[in-house]
Design a protein around this nucleic acid. Structure first.
Lengths: 329, 329
DNA sequence: GCCGTATGTGTAATCGATTACACAAAGTTC
DNA sequence: GAACTTTGTGTAATCGATTACACATACGGC
């Protein structure tokens, strides 16, 4: 590896001059500049970011902690992050927890040790311990997807979105609306969406039968099972189902079709996420569009503000949503 | 930020002793060890990876250059990478080119400057200049998805897979088989898959009409258009279509349905990628499963071998594939 | 009691950049 | 032409770790 000293020697200047040239700090004569550029050209010299960071404390790296690599929502969010951060010369260092809560904390430390300038966490849970560890770090930090006390975050309007969708179903004449959710340990998806459902039903004075509320996992198969259970166990069959994710909805769709029911005539169905999948299943799925890409962009802007110590407009950003009305309702 | 010196001072030892303790190198007395651990516990000291890297030249970071964040194939590949590399304590530094060829080269330098221990490139094109730059770098390097001269790579058996699928269609009685491809500047997807198609048709002595070969882009809409053009312009309507990606196939599917043709009775359809989407469209899509996750894992293993200077078994790994036979044929 | 080895610790150089400070030469101002 | 200012450059300290080397003490064996 060729170093700044080597470049300096060959260009007959001191390393300070080379550094000044590279960073446009201080005076450098035209002759010196050209000699240095020539040497750099010849040698293919690239300054060590490592040495630079050690001295300046700026790494131009943002750590991103993700619950799962490769889900569509995550990908879109990371895409949004990258769009904004790349423009500012930042790169992303990935940390994939594979849904393990301990790893979240472990990675927090790992990222700190790498002197990342900021950390963005796409959380599924929000344990006490995690929040504590974050406060300790004293590194610009943003959570996306979950509301975390005293922490800048980008969240979705889960309750309102769910409520809106349920009310859309009600408008369409449905009174027996069922719900396929997930564990409430995922506050955003499990707890808040259920709250939205309950609120809407309550508001319209609609009763809910016990088996209309099912709890599933995050995969398609699980949505299928939940739907099966619901239909087999309910005294009265619902006429519409709200599933908390598109995947669950598609699992449910599979069962509904299999059971010989028509969508939407016998059973209306809605999901959440506006996944690509949702547009191409038959019938196309009515779903909530949560703008994950935008969430990533907002999170990126937030972390940039924090890094640059700008006055932060709001430390909680609540993102808008839209109902994507398709053929399944 | 608390440093090793600070820890040393508080524990009443020298920084060398702290370092020895942390790295289990050399002797450290039980008393000293405990004092140091206590200080670390109290202060939350985390060693600076930056300083460490500067001295040792080991960063435990692998750079990953991707053509596009958030596509399903990419996600799966990155997932495979991460699985293997995380186990060895490596982290991934992302560089997203957004399909720009100049950026590929730019990022190569950027990653070098960050002293990554290896670079994995998921390429779409393989320009001369890129290959040259890579040779210059002298950093362990692996390409995945494209065959690159004199470079360790993980590739898919594009030709064979395509040929197999076409022959499967032929076995099923199809003689008029059409092809929706992409630009040949993408060697793997554009050129090789077309070769496989042509080879299979030739082998079985089947003629190909001009309009049966369409060239599209990578999105669903483009598949729709290609299918539309084909049906409107062909003298003889084909009875089967091979699309080089699932997305294109799904676009084509939309048009076929819209045109009032039945799948597979009037028109059989196949894709490539075994995307999640392919399983849930109606009818479910027959497709080629290319094991992108495995590709990531193999690439990771390859780069680890290169880093550790182990004897490299083969510098070209050709991955297996499978035909996923579903309802669209 | 002497010598060789094992144990334990500290001093200081080093990695490759940035940057405060010092200094010199040339140009400006009055 | 004295006093500043501007331009240009070099010396050396610094960031926070690792590690070669030196040195001290303890413990064996004979």
């Amino acid at each position: 590896m060729i170093t700044i000293k080597e470049v300096a020697k060959r260009a007959n200047v001191s390393s300070a001059t080379v550094s000044r040239m590279l960073n446009d700090s201080g005076y450098v004569s035209e002759e010196a500049r050209e000699r240095i550029l020539k040497v750099i050209e010849e040698t293919g010299y690239v300054p060590s970011e490592n040495a630079k960071s050690l001295r300046t404390k700026k790494t131009k790296v943002i750590g991103v902690i993700l619950p799962k690599l490769g889900s569509e929502t995550t990908s879109r969010m990371v895409n949004g992050l990258d769009r904004v951060l790349a423009a500012e010369g930042y790169q992303l260092l990935l940390a994939n927890t594979n849904l393990s809560a301990e790893k979240e904390i472990e990675f927090l430390k790992l990222l700190k040790s790498r002197d990342v300038e900021g950390i963005i966490l796409s959380a599924t849970n929000t344990s006490e311990q995690l929040v504590e560890e974050i406060q300790k770090l004293k590194i610009p930090f943003v959570v996306v997807g979950q509301d975390m006390p005293d922490t800048p975050s980008v969240v979705f309007n889960e309750i309102m979105a769910t409520q809106d969708m349920i009310e859309y179903l009600i408008e369409k004449g449905h009174e027996k609306v069922a719900f396929i959710g997930v564990s409430e340990s995922d506050r955003a998806v499990g707890l808040l969406r259920k709250k939205g459902y309950l609120a809407a039903m309550e508001k319209h004075g609609l009763p809910i039968e016990e088996h209309w509320i099912q709890t599933a996992f995050f995969d398609v198969e699980s949505g299928y099972q939940a739907m099966k259970n619901m239909i087999e166990e309910s005294a009265q069959r619902p006429t519409a189902v709200f599933a908390v994710t598109d995947r669950l909805a598609i699992g449910a769709m599979n069962y509904i079709k299999e059971a010989g029911l028509r969508i939407p005539e016998d059973m209306a169905l809605t999901g959440v996420g506006a996944s690509e999948l949702s547009q191409y299943v038959t019938p196309s799925l009515t779903t909530v569009d949560f703008q994950y890409n935008k969430a990533g962009q907002e999170a990126a802007n937030l972390i940039l503000s924090l890094i640059n110590q700008k006055n932060i407009p709001t430390s909680k950003i609540v993102l808008d949503y839209g109902l994507v009305k398709k053929d399944s309702v």
